[in-house]
């Protein structure tokens, strides 16, 4: 009985310690994001890494999602003769949900893992210690550029992804489902509201921040050689993915409440 209590106590303490450490990390990271000096060169490099090199992955994901959405919604709506709604359904689901979530998850796998591995390796080979001895703050040099790049690049990626996805739906709609190209495009823009797109981009920014934060946090606190870096990488991807799904709900709820 006492061992059980001790166990619960220990788990609780670990939990509190982790939450504390994480909050401290986030606070410090954000404070270095908004305080000069910044490193433009490093920010640009991260932006290219996150934005440009993720384009193929995000583009392919949204392209096929748009295509399958068109097929499935056509199938569903045909049952009550509402095939006309296909274009609208495709664009709304993409901009509000699928664009940001799918892009977020793909980028989490690609970028979150890479960040955790890179920073984790720097931690275990004492490169982060070396930064401090060279009067360079690791938060400013390593963490802030990644957070800024994540925050700004994900919305751009999602915007491009949305367009590619809509194009995927258009391809299927016009070639397989027999829509007139002009009508399809008209239907796409007709019922689209600015809020659909904006809420998706807000989500994307939040996801980008979370992905970079998780990559940096787990990398920064990794210990114990190659195995520790491996664990950090896994944790970064898993925690970022879960947080993306939770945040997705929370942000949707917030936008609906208005």
């Amino acid at each position: 009985m006492t061992t059980l209590l001790a166990l619960i106590g220990r788990v609780f303490l670990t939990f509190v310690r982790t939450v504390g450490r994480f909050s401290l990390f986030t606070g410090l990271a954000v404070s270095h994001m908004v305080r000069p000096p910044l490193y433009p060169r490093l920010i640009v490099r991260q932006m290219i890494e996150i934005g440009y090199y993720s384009l193929p992955v995000v583009g392919l994901t949204t392209l096929f999602s748009g295509m399958v959405l068109a097929l499935q919604s056509h199938l569903g709506f045909a049952r009550f003769s509402a095939e006309g709604a296909v274009a609208t359904v495709v664009v709304i689901s993409l901009t509000r949900e699928l664009g940001p979530v799918l892009a977020g998850l793909m980028v989490a796998g690609r970028i979150g893992a890479a960040m955790a591995a890179e920073i984790g390796t720097m931690r275990v080979t004492e490169q982060i210690d070396a930064l401090s001895t060279l009067s360079t703050n690791p938060f400013k040099y390593l963490v802030a550029p990644r957070l800024i790049a994540g925050l700004t690049m994900l919305p751009l990626l999602v915007l491009v992804g949305d367009i590619i996805g809509v194009f995927g739906g258009y391809l299927i709609g016009t070639t397989k489902l027999g829509f007139n190209p002009g009508t399809y495009i008209a239907r796409t823009v007709e019922f689209l509201q600015i809020m659909d797109v904006v809420s998706g981009l807000v989500k994307a920014a939040a996801f980008g921040f979370v992905i970079a934060l998780m990559g940096c946090y787990h990398g920064y606190h990794s210990k114990g050689g190659a195995q520790g870096v491996g664990a950090a990488t896994t944790n970064a991807v898993v925690s970022a993915s879960i947080l993306i799904l939770i945040l997705n709900y929370v942000i949707t709820e917030l936008f609906f409440a208005q």
Binding site: E118, T121, M122, T125, E126, Q127, D129, A130, L131, S132, T133, L134, S135, T136, N137
Partner: peptide, 24 residues
Amino acid sequence: DGRARDRVNAHLGMLFQGAALFDS
């Protein structure tokens, strides 16, 4: 901490056991 520590470290140099060169 922070700036104050950086100011002190600016006068120090360190060779790490594993060299700890920035591999990027």
